[in-house]
Nucleic acid binder design. Structure first.
Length: 481
DNA sequence: TGAAATGTTGGGGCG
DNA sequence: ACGCCCCAACATTTC
């Protein structure tokens, strides 16, 4: 009986464009697909609550897709190195295939696993698949990693298009004997009491098949208006592909090539395509930074920010988390996040700016909250983006760029459609006051059924004052350096 | 992938 | 008719 190959699924929960899988299938060997839930690989970046919900459903979908090809998904829990090394011996595997990962702990894990497996006579082969370009492959002229986005992306794209995606295997040979598998439900990845995700299937259907549909739908209906409408939370013009990328239900190469193909058949999509690819580029840049600067999720990229006089304000943090800041666009975003595991990108920037510059709370607290509540939580993108807003990151927003939450609301949600959806207690306010309820005449408030301090809070900080305060603090930091 | 403060311009009201 | 002032509207600078 031929010996099997273990395909270790990680953040690549798909069958299409999965080289680790495809190269294993190509050998003709029996395939043992495995997923290992390893909550100890990082002490404080354990998969967050919202992501665990997604993970559960995406694993269920992958298991179903594998079953259709005559295979299974073996589930194991524990230290990935130990689990895989033992499984490889028990199954008499000749090799373990996996897609590369880029978290701070991933390199060491992969090196350790390779040594351990090879000592046992088992090959360990890594494949790319989660990024368009490997972090080491993009270098400045003097061989260093990039710290600025534009030249990074130019250099990354310079050698030519990323590799074309490969098809899914048509069938997987089963091993003579299947190893035991955990029961997915027993992992308890989904919330129970309370089941705050009960309504989430209305918003999200995890799994590769739905990811493919979402991609096609986005390219068909939104790419044409993407360049302008992507900033409008009241319109559904963003791709919402982020959780698909985070779990690898789609490869970035698939997205990249399908978007280009769509644009070739319709030249009017060119503007949207170029904006959209730039966003994919930011994801690549984030991974580039995380790989070369593994402290990115925890420490400011610009070390002078270690001295920044952040406030300690648990009550304000709580108000921000629960969408009770008194700034409708911020509250709408935070409630969208809490209720659906997602927030529109423009609103993420506004909400993040508010936490950092208006409340002067450390960016790490916002990062941690997003990590736990986002279904698309991604260590690289989350860390890089928070540092970008805080001004302490690579190629970051300048310190004096402070978002005015009222003006941002009026500019990007001009008719208050987004606010009304997520902050229903303000729904009956006229447009003129939907982003500034505390300035509405009392009669207007009464007619809209709004009682300040009771049905909706007054602003927990005065933005104009907070802005002055923040500018002073950031300027002081600059003076020290 | 800002916003506020400050500067400049030009049309229109008015003596 | 003319100059003066006011002040939107727009442009530039500064944080």
């Amino acid at each position: 009986m031929p010996r099997p190959i273990i395909v270790w699924f990680r953040s690549d929960l798909r069958l299409r464009d999965n080289r680790a899988l495809l190269r294993a299938v190509a050998t003709g060997a029996p395939i043992i697909p495995v997923y290992v839930l390893d909550d100890e690989q990082s002490d404080h970046w354990r998969t967050g609550s919202a992501s665990r919900w997604w993970l559960h459903h995406s694993l269920a979908a992958l298991a179903g897709d594998l079953q259709k090809l005559g295979s299974r998904l073996i589930l194991r829990r524990g230290n990935a190195l130990t689990v895989l090394a033992k499984l490889a011996i028990d199954c008499k595997a000749t090799a373990v295939h996996a897609s590369r990962a880029y978290q701070p702990w991933a390199g060491q894990l992969e090196t350790g696993l390779k040594q351990r497996l090879e000592a046992d006579g088992v090959d360990f082969r890594r494949f790319s698949g989660s990024l368009l370009f490997e972090p080491e492959a993009v270098r400045t002229k003097d061989g260093r990693p990039f710290k600025v986005y534009s030249p990074f992306w130019r250099a990354a794209m310079e050698p030519g298009d990323p590799p074309r995606p490969e098809p899914a295997p048509r069938a997987l040979a089963a091993p003579a004997r299947w190893p035991a598998s955990d029961d997915l439900n027993a992992w308890r990845l989904c919330p129970e009491k309370p089941d705050w995700a009960a309504g989430w299937p209305q918003h999200w259907l995890p799994g590769e098949a739905h990811a493919q549909e979402r991609l096609k739908e986005f390219l068909r209906s939104s790419l044409t208006v993407y360049a302008t409408d992507r900033d409008r939370p009241d319109r559904l013009a963003t791709s919402r592909l982020s959780p698909r990328l985070a779990f690898g239900e789609l490869s970035p190469a698939t997205i990249w090539h399908e978007a280009h193909a769509a644009s070739r058949s319709k030249p009017e999509l060119a503007a949207g395509l170029s904006k959209f690819c730039k966003e994919i580029g930011w994801r690549e840049f984030s991974y580039h930074l995380l790989w070369h600067f593994p402290s990115l999720p925890d420490a400011p990229f610009r070390p002078e920010f270690e001295k920044f006089p952040w406030r300690k304000a648990p009550v304000a943090l709580r108000a921000w988390q629960r969408g009770q800041t008194g700034y409708p666009i911020v509250d709408a975003g935070m409630r969208e996040l809490w209720q659906t595991g997602y927030m529109h990108n423009r609103v993420r920037m506004i909400a993040a700016s508010f936490l950092i510059k208006d409340l002067m709370l450390p960016w790490q607290q916002g990062e941690a909250w997003f990590w736990d509540t986002l279904v698309d939580a991604d260590l690289a993108s989350n860390a890089a983006s928070w540092q970008w807003v805080a001004g302490c990151g690579a190629d970051a927003a300048p310190y004096f760029r402070v978002f005015n939450p009222t003006l941002q609301g009026e500019k990007f949600d001009p008719n208050g459609v987004y606010v009304r959806r997520w902050v229903p207690e303000l729904a009956r306010l006229p447009d003129a006051f939907i982003h500034r309820p505390a300035t509405a005449p009392s009669q207007v408030l009464a007619e809209a059924g709004v009682e300040l301090d009771h049905t909706y809070p007054r602003p927990i900080v005065d933005h104009a004052e907070a802005r002055e305060h923040a500018l002073l603090a950031f300027k002081g930091l600059k003076a020290v350096v």
